[in-house]
Amino acid sequence: MTPGARTGLEIGGAIIVAAVAAVYLPQLLELFALINATVWVSMAVLALSLGLVWGFGGILCFGQTAFFGLGGYTYAVASINFGDTTWAVPLALLLPTLLAAALGYLMFYGRISDVYMGVITLTTTLILFKFANSTAGDQWNIGEAPLGGFNGIPSTPPLNFPFAPDQQMVPEQIFVVAVICLAACYAIAKMVLRTRFGRVCVAIKENELRAELLGYDVRLHKLALFALSGLMAGLAGILFANCVFVSPTMFSLSYAGQVIIWVLVGGIGTLVGPVIGCVLVQWLTTYAGTLSWIDPNLLLGVVFMAAVLLVPKGLLPTASGLLAKLTGRGAA
């Protein structure tokens, strides 16, 4: 099978899975479970955005939540002010992309090494977290939207159909939109990685010096990939804002950490892996929350330590490696 056909097949598979989920899950699940599922899907988009930039660009961003939260906040503020979400969405995609581009310029053109990059991105999301937390009171209104400090913006409006402000979507429809967004992000990421640009990014991840000596502009490629992942994280933020509401926790250290854990558990260097990791860890977190005899943090922490020690490559690559070994042995 040629790589092109393989990509086509994978994208086709993702579309089928998404279509099945979009058609059947709203009928199967109760309303609460469906809204929860939408949250998970939005988180999966966030995981995918980090999986792209970390697994294929070698850029470990500790503050992916900065773009996630900024997307959510922009969406909430803009749609309250416009009274219509049609233009709020593009704006909420643009701002995180610009933030990612600006940060990327600081980091990649400053040739900052990976640990320091982690610090800068983490710091950015913490700044936003602190700032968002301090915006209680009337002096912090943007137009008609109060930023609400610690409480966030509980009145975040749900999406409406384009150019029809009175036709708001119901949770079932928002779920379908979220699933479509996830499938689209997956397809876009797959296709980008097939282009010349995407392959140069992977080459840079493998050996930055060599790629640079071959004449590729390492800084520009990293910047562009980082901006794309910022855009996807912003989209995740919009979806999240639609099923919960925006609050400073979107920027928090625990969210920032969870994203990394999802990608790590699922498998770096894959795109499906982060999505699987996200769903698994979310499920585990929810399940742990219902147990009374053990603290959820304790359970999660032990799982993460075990994941790093036992499956350092992540679940998906480990599983497919095992599978290849088994079938290879079977054939021989």
Binding site: D295, P296, N297, L299, G301, V303, M305
Partner: peptide, 19 residues
């Protein structure tokens, strides 16, 4: 990997002490 493992440790310690 060390950073991530110690992050796990940090969560586990928070959880354990809370319990």
């Amino acid at each position: 990997d060390t950073m991530l493992a110690t992050w796990g440790l940090s969560l586990a310690l928070i959880g354990g002490v809370t319990m």
